[in-house]
Amino acid sequence: MESHVVQLVQLCLNGIAIGAIYALVALGLVLIYKATEIINFAHGDILMASAFVGWGLITIAGLPFWLAALVTMLLAAALSYVLEARVLRVIVGQPQFAGAMLTLALAFMLRGAVSMAFGPTSRTFPTPWTGQTTHLGPLVIADLNLVILVAALVITALLFFFLRRTSVGISVQAASQNQLAAYLCGIPVKRLNSMVWAMAGAMAAVGGLLLAPIALVDIGLWYVVLKALAALVLGGFGSIPGAIVGGLLIGIVEQLAGVYLPDGFKDVMAYLVLIGVLVLWPRGILGEAHGRRV
């Protein structure tokens, strides 16, 4: 193969790996949005906090990676459950803006708490795949990227199975379509909403543990939530497959922009895509069409 084709494929592969994380984060956001109609701006901070907790468990407590990952996921899930049940439920019925602002406030508090507990320095932790690579013809793929991709695929598949095939999952769908009707059918809507938040929290923890080895364990990790919002908008707001497609596309576009466009475009590409899609094509790729009700 010619060198620039190899480069292109390589970039796409890297983009898919990053994009898989964006997709995971976007998936958590879309689950929460569908269940409680809140855009959870604190999602990125839960991810960042999980990365720090994972670092603490691995390097300070000396736990093996898998155990640490499990504990981190459970902690993040518990945190999200409590946030929904004790804080966000108070403002049910207020305009959407209030929900967004409340999650923003929680985001600030988490960010402040993490930087008070761990300090502003960035750090890194070892994973079982750090530094290993797989050669595929002329392509070099870091094992970590493969793991990210596999993890994202597994979580997506589990989520699909859960939402389509289990009775709890179908209850979640019912509650997200019409809460009152679901409640009258005997579905415990409140508990389901908290559970959806807990699931999203666990997914954020996975995202944090996978993103930290690529980036660094740093306060700035929360920024990924903004990229995930761009992914969500591109894929079509409120669509689960759309979140995945959007995430992967944003990841690829970013990598390509870093090489083929002038310096500086890589950082803003996701936001340019966000504005462009919302202005020209608000439905997104897989978004549902809906009219305006009076």
């Binding site: 923003l104 406030a105 508090m109 402040g112």
Partner: peptide
């Protein structure tokens, strides 16, 4: 331990905002 930290301001901002939204919209 608390006062010397860099994130205190961020935390208080979030706390104030959260309290206002919850108790005095």
């Amino acid at each position: 331990r608390v006062a010397g930290q860099f994130g205190l301001e961020t935390f208080v901002f979030g706390l104030v905002l959260a309290l206002f939204i919850l108790f005095e919209p």
